[in-house]
Each structure stands twice: as C-alpha cells, then as structure tokens.
Design a protein around this nucleic acid. Sequence first.
DNA 1: CCGCTCATGTAACTGGTTACATGATTTA
DNA 2: TAAATCATGTAACCAGTTACATGAGCGG
Lengths: 163, 163
Amino acid sequence: MVWRDGPCSTYQVRKSFLESPTPTWSGSAGAIYPAVRRLERAGLLRSRKADRDGRGTRLYRITTAGRRALEAWLTPPLPDDAVGISSDPVRTRVLFLEVLPPARRRKFLDGVERQLDEHLAELREARRAVLASGEPSLALAARGALLVARARRRWLREVRESL
Amino acid sequence: MVWRDGPCSTYQVRKSFLESPTPTWSGSAGAIYPAVRRLERAGLLRSRKADRDGRGTRLYRITTAGRRALEAWLTPPLPDDAVGISSDPVRTRVLFLEVLPPARRRKFLDGVERQLDEHLAELREARRAVLASGEPSLALAARGALLVARARRRWLREVRESL
DNA sequence: CCGCTCATGTAACTGGTTACATGATTTA
DNA sequence: TAAATCATGTAACCAGTTACATGAGCGG
C-alpha cells in the first residue's frame, strides 16, 4: 500500500485496511502502527517528518529493498497456503452439519443461503462502484470475489439437494 | 471433532488437524493441547484418564454445554466474516500486479495457473478417495473446495485476458 | 471556545508458531 | 536391544485485538 500510495502516513495505510471489503483485514490500530514500524526497522520502508503537522506524523516511502520484497512476493511459486484450499467457515460448518437434527439442517441452509444472497448483492453493487471508479486492479479483484462467492452459493444448493 | 470422534485423546484431535487438506489448520501441538484444556476449563469438554496407558493420556468427551455451543455455532445468522469475502492470497497479489513490468506479470500468471492446475488435480484425487471412503460430509466438503478452486482458476484466465 | 472527529499511538490480554523435552511404544 | 516414532506436553517468541489515552484541527 505504501508502494501504491506514494509517501503516505500510517493512518492512510490504515484507512485502506478499514475500507477494504475483506473482513479479515480489520485495520486495527494496534496491528497497523507496530507493523509499519517493523517494516521500517527491517529496511523495507523509509520515513520523514511531515511539514506543518503538529502531530509529528511521519510519511513513509518504499525502499529499494522493499520493492524487491514486493517483487519476490509476486514471484511464483507461491507458498502452499496461498494456492491451497482456502479456509471457508461455511464449509467447515457443513462438515459438522450432522450435529443438528434434519429439520435444523434445513434451517441452517435456509439462513446461510439467504446471507450468501445478500452478500452476492453487495458484491455486485461494490463491483459496479469500482468499475465506475476506473481502477482496473480493484475491478479485477471484485470480479474474483464475485466468482468465488457464486461458486460457494452453487455449492450450497448442491448441499441442500444431497441432504 | 471431539463430538464426532467420541471419547478421544488430544492427540487424536491433533491428527485430524494434521491430516486436514486445508493448510490453515496446522495442527501444531502448541495450539491444540492448550486449546483442549481451555475447552475443558470452559466446561465444553470433560475428560477421564485412559486405562492401561503409561503416558497419562486423558480421553475427552463433549458435554451438554459443549453440544449446545456446537449447535449455536451452526445456527444462522453466521457472523459476517463467515459469509463475507474470504481472504485469497492470489487475489491480494493480483491487486498489486502493477508492481511488476508486463512481461513478469505474464510470468506470474503462468506460474500461478500451473500451481492452481496441480492443486485442482490433487483436489480431484482427494475427492475420489473421500467418495470411496463413503463419508458424506467429507465428500460434500471436498466438492465445495473443488468448486471454489475452479472458480479461482477461471478467474485467473479472465485476469490474463484483461491484461 | 466547546465538542467532535481525526490521527497517532500504547498496554494488557489472547492465542498461535517454533523448537525443544520427555517418556512410552513399536519395529528392525 | 537399539533406533525410530508415537504421544504428551512446555517455554519463548511473535503478532493481532480490544480498549484506552492524548493531542490536533475543525465546525458551529
């Protein structure tokens, strides 16, 4: 994010996390501020004091080493846990569906299908917004999220049928 | 897992994690043993000493409260991060693909498509094994993992075309 | 100038990873 | 019976969450 957003404050990085639609990126201050300091200590970021700012804000830039680290992160082969089966809380729950009596299994599927449909509507809406904004990477990512969500939704229908 | 595997040792639970194809479930001893003890302290599990075992192994069973907790976990609405956009390390990387010059972007896609194809072959193989074993929940989960992996694979093809 | 939100943190708690220790059991 | 591996842990380290503190800047 510092690579992308040029010289920027930790707070700007934090905002990117807070605004991300992916809920695993919480953007809590207690994670971001220490992480940025770690990256600077590791030599991947460099900072200078911001002008006319009473808060002592520091502006960060990526270093050459940081750039190299980014490129390494984008160089295959990716680690196993990047391409392997992604964790899916719904799939995990289905593994233990037999805990419930059959009637409640159907209720589970009803509820989750409903939630997934709402989620799909949000994703389509978000994708429209991002297409309008004209940022190609964001549009691609939104498309990816949508395709995966659709696959999960179709799978849930199969689960119901096999029940 | 204790619900499913009847009275069982912590090590049996650990084996389930170690054998899981989902790489985020590492099954490290330093996670499992303390977790099982926490569950017992919370009253969700109960244990007794195993007969004729020199290691002082304890066998765990789920309690009524544990059973209730399991059912609550399976009762919609699920939390947002369970149905929301799942984190996907490949998608995250694509967001920052512009770090690379165009030739290396193609190399990234080549490598990841190759890895995903291998992963798909493994998933199909695993699914066959699980279908043969005759465990319906495992077969459903394997099917879900396969559908999601296929969606990711198709999306990567779109990414290449849009490049 | 008062209160709100912006912005930058910090501290205690929680929990996972890595690496090691130890004794039981099995196998060659 | 010696070596391997099974099984049960523990300790140090690392990193994220929650909740709080503090001061800057701004809008009425």
